[in-house]
Computed example of a mutant assay.
Amino acid sequence: MTIISASYLDAASAEPLHPAARDVLEAALARGWADPRRRHAPGRDARLLLDNARAAIAECLEVDPEEVGFTASGTSAVHRGLLGLTASSGRGGIVHTAVEHSAVLHALAWREHDAHAAVGVDRTGRVDVEALAAAARVDGVGAVAVQAGNQEIGTLQPVDELDVPAGVPVFMDAAAAVGRGPLPRRWSVLAASARKWGGPSGVGVLVVRRGTRWRNPFPGEDAVDESPFPDVPAALAAAAALQAVLAESAETAPRQHALIDRARAALAEVPDLELVGDPVHRLPHVLTFSCLYVAGDELVDALARRGYAVASGSACTASTLEPSHVLAAVGALTHGNVRVSVGRDTEEADVDGLCRAVTEIVADIRSREGL
């Protein structure tokens, strides 16, 4: 039996399947099962659905349909997109912010013998654009990786302010930001993940702008699509979810922004609790904080027992038990860390209850430790 938390506050990891996606997925399963490369009727049906999915995603992201590809995950989109830029130019160096998602860091490790450079951020998590531009001018640099918004602390990056040399393309990991507000425009390749906006898991989106030098860095056809036989129903459902989320965003984004502001104000009253990330220039749905003298996993488990589902540590490195590289980069506490991310259905009562629970649990843990 699946147990759903009374208050799901981990939307930055995955949103529940959007009702619009569920309806489309059920309908598409009956028509989109065939190989879309085939010329027979079932194949043409699948091709039509796939083309519709590509066109819908393109419209949502304000790009051309032929620039959009589907991958098996957001991680795969990051790896293919970023390494495809360096593969095409022969310049393997990648300049990146110190707070990029671990998928970017893993891509760097794939080309570990190249001259990569991490550019630091300030206490809010915002990258130094001048330092990044200077690093991008070094010989051998084939790409710059700058995320749209940080998946862990919510800080938005000034992608449109970047002044990188001509011939050095910008890769933007937009997984945390798609559907959450306007996206930056000064990028050459974009990667995203459908489960972040209420689409099915197992659907990544890779966008390569026309005129960008890019080629598949892995064995297989030199195409933006990871597979010539993608999951057509899931791709169409992902597109339907994104359309619905964007249609709702004028109401959803301000409401979520206000919920996080409400949580920040309440948690600021907890002694020795540090709020992390930019309080203004941020994703609308993410809040991270660290508590001195409290273990993050202990706090998360105690909150789960009270019905609050949140995340601890880096969403991408928690399983390794390594300290969060994002928190380390901004100089925040790397222990006692909790990420709260509100979803479509989160209400003020969920946030208020969480904040009361955090206050009580932190006091109890510290009391038991004699603090």
Rank of each mutant, 00 (worst) to 15 (best):
A349P: 08
A237L: 06
I153G: 05
H106L: 10
P16D: 07
A177V: 00
A148W: 01
P200S: 07
E226H: 08
A244I: 13
L354Q: 06
G307D: 13
Q147T: 11
L25G: 03
L275S: 03
D345V: 09
A107M: 00
D225T: 09
E269F: 06
L273M: 15
I4G: 04
D163T: 11
R111Q: 15
A166D: 10
V63I: 03
D139S: 11
G142Y: 00
A315H: 09
A304W: 07
V144Y: 10
D35K: 09
P233H: 01
D352S: 15
A241H: 02
V178H: 05
H325P: 14
A20F: 05
G43D: 07
A191T: 01
N337P: 03
L83H: 04
V159R: 08
R47W: 08
A72W: 10
A58W: 10
D173H: 07
R305D: 11
E26I: 12
S201W: 00
E26T: 10
L108E: 00
W187Y: 10
S5I: 11
A11E: 08
A72S: 15
T317M: 10
L49K: 05
E274M: 14
E130C: 12
Y8S: 05
A238G: 13
A265G: 08
R255L: 14
S314H: 04
P42H: 11
Y293S: 12
L371D: 06
V330S: 02
R111V: 14
A41R: 09
K196A: 03
L259E: 04
E347A: 13
G92N: 08
H113Q: 11
V205C: 08
V203W: 03
L25A: 06
G202V: 06
Q243F: 00
D272F: 05
